[in-house]
């Protein structure tokens, strides 16, 4: 059972007000429990939680480099196993460190099937360094390296499907969750840390600064992503999708119009052609995972 009163992430960290990631991390630690060793690659989380000489963590925590969090976690897990210890090793990293820069080490750790849980808080760009696009940035989002303008409609690439890539490595448990549904997230983390082998969870974590919405709307935006079908909450056990969250789908406009990163789709005039392309992505998700009620 998840202990909701367990507090392992202390106040005083420097995340923006309304940060989806810091809220997600609190829930993740509640799900993982006290006997956890956390590894973080470089990213917003690392920077806001541990400005020297302070730390918000109340569990052992290590940061080495941007690209090698999975390798560090693999080493810790191997050492604990040799010593006969039972602590859980959890990596909490951003989407840049997961889908782009740490991809090599991540693939290696999953190939060797270390008993670790890799959790990616997905805020869909490199927020820490100033909102550059990453492999997890959704189609048509405007970032500082994929700016929307007269010749561009923002990011022209599709979001990389990391859960499927890691499931193809033979991961026993792969799941997606969102910080907008705390109970679901905590339960999935608990399942992952208690599943032997390399497990992966991707957590949708809206970023008020990078996406351009008010800090009080973080959960609302997170829920809209699920309700429009642009984010699907599912569990994959031994590579087979089980339990995808079913929704009565809303049009994607509801999700896009509340964020400044999609502002160019509505101003100066509404771009129905581009919105239809985003809607097509949601429709594909709905068909693939069977989420329509």
């Amino acid at each position: 059972m998840v202990d909701k009163t367990l507090e392992l992430f202390e106040c005083g960290h420097r995340a923006c007000g309304g940060c989806g990631a810091s809220s997600a991390v609190r829930m993740i630690l509640k799900g993982a429990g006290e006997d956890t060793i956390v590894v973080s690659p470089t990213g917003c989380l690392e920077v806001f939680s541990t400005p020297y000489p302070e730390t918000a963590w109340k569990v052992p925590w290590i940061h080495s480099l941007f690209e090698n969090a999975s390798a560090v976690a693999s080493g810790i897990e191997a050492s604990l196993k040799r010593q006969g210890r039972k602590e859980k090793v959890v990596v909490i990293g951003g989407d840049g460190a997961t889908v782009d820069i740490g991809m090599l080490c991540l693939s290696g750790a999953f190939e060797r099937n270390h008993d670790i849980t890799y959790i990616c808080y997905d805020n869909e760009a490199y927020m820490n360094t100033g909102i550059q696009r990453s492999g997890a940035t959704p189609f048509d989002a405007s970032t500082t390296t994929s700016p929307a303008g007269s010749c561009s409609m923002g990011n022209k690439h599709q979001k990389k499907d990391i859960p499927a890539i890691l499931a193809a490595h033979g991961a026993p448990y792969v799941a997606t969750a969102t910080m907008a549904y705390p109970t679901d997230l905590m339960k999935k983390v608990e399942t992952a840390v208690n599943t032997p082998g390399a497990c992966y969870i991707q957590v949708h974590a809206p970023c008020c600064t990078g996406w351009g919405f008010d800090g009080s709307k973080t959960i609302e935006v997170g829920k809209l992503a699920v309700e429009t079908g642009l984010w699907v909450n599912y569990e994959m056990i031994d590579g087979v999708v089980k339990k995808a969250k079913k929704v009565k789908r809303k049009p994607v406009e509801d999700y896009l119009s509340v964020q400044k990163r999609f502002r160019h789709l509505f101003k100066p005039q509404k771009n129905d052609e581009e919105i239809a392309k985003v809607q097509a992505i949601a429709d594909r998700n709905a068909e693939k995972f069977g989420i329509d009620l």
């Binding site: 909701k4 009163t5 507090e7 992430f9 202390e10 106040c11 005083g12 960290h13 995340a15 923006c16 007000g17 309304g18 940060c19 989806g20 810091s22 809220s23 609190r26 829930m27 910080m179 705390p182 008020c208 008010d214 800090g215 009080s216 973080t218 959960i219």
Partner: peptide
């Protein structure tokens, strides 16, 4: 549960007290 700061303390039944030393006022 959702407070990004984790600064809302449970003092009793229906008694939730925010620690204003840390609350950033996000309004979530």
């Amino acid at each position: 549960l959702i407070c990004p700061e984790g600064c809302i303390e449970v003092k009793g039944e229906k008694e939730y007290v925010p620690d204003l030393n840390y609350c950033k006022g996000c309004g979530l």
